[in-house]
């Protein structure tokens, strides 16, 4: 974890927020590039996230890492923006009378994992990003999401179950492992 110790940040301090911004910006931006389609959209969302975070900076509590708190805000911004994009896409389809849009060149550049991650429900995707991209513990995630730790575990399990079922074969190819036949459970 590259984040500064929580004790080193003072809620409401502009200087500390500047420091937090400098130390987390790259990772937050990279995270939002995964969730959103374009780097430009990710940059807008990142700036919006920091603006919201700064407005709420004095309410940040030290029981959760500042970066995790920021990631949560950033993901909320990104998912809101994505919903807007989808509504816009639906509007565009209606305007084209149902004809499909031209293929998006950025789609072919996405990995299967990114595509599947974007298809997850936002809460599950957030849990995966916080846990497996940013490396927070379940306890830290629970604190920042204000949910019980078991809820985090359950969201992670559901998300990974779905990703595994969709991407297991690819993972096996890349890692040179093989998926065993499922063993039926005895009653």
């Amino acid at each position: 974890m590259i984040d500064q110790p929580a004790q080193s940040y003072r809620p409401g301090s502009k200087d500390d927020f500047d420091r937090l911004y400098r130390s987390t910006y790259q990772r937050i931006f990279a995270t939002l590039v995964i969730i959103l389609k374009s780097p430009a959209a990710a940059e807008d969302a990142t700036q919006e996230a920091y603006l919201r975070a700064f407005r709420a900076w004095r309410t940040w509590k030290k029981d959760a890492p500042a970066e995790a708190w920021l990631v949560r805000i950033a993901l909320n911004v990104a998912f809101t923006q994505r919903r807007r994009e989808r509504l816009f896409e639906i509007g565009a389809i209606l305007r084209r009378l149902g004809r499909p849009a031209d293929p998006d060149p950025t789609d072919s550049m996405q990995s299967d994992l990114v595509r599947e991650l974007r298809a997850l429900p936002p809460k599950q995707a957030s849990a995966i990003v916080l846990r497996h991209l940013h490396g927070f513990t379940n306890r830290e995630i629970a604190a920042v999401l204000n949910v019980p730790e078991r809820t985090v575990a359950s969201r992670l399990a559901a998300a990974k179950g779905r990703l595994r079922s969709r991407l297991g074969e690819r993972m096996n190819t890349e890692m040179g492992t093989s998926m065993p036949e499922p063993v039926p459970l005895e009653e």
Partner: peptide, 30 residues
């Protein structure tokens, strides 16, 4: 194994996607 693969792939996806310079003076909130 899956977790490891997940983490590695996500790290690869985000590598080199740092974006613009994080100069606080240029930030919207600032």
């Amino acid at each position: 194994g899956f977790d490891q693969w997940l983490e590695q792939t996500l790290q690869q996806e985000t590598a080199g996607r740092g974006g613009p310079s994080p100069d606080a003076a240029q930030a919207t909130y600032h």
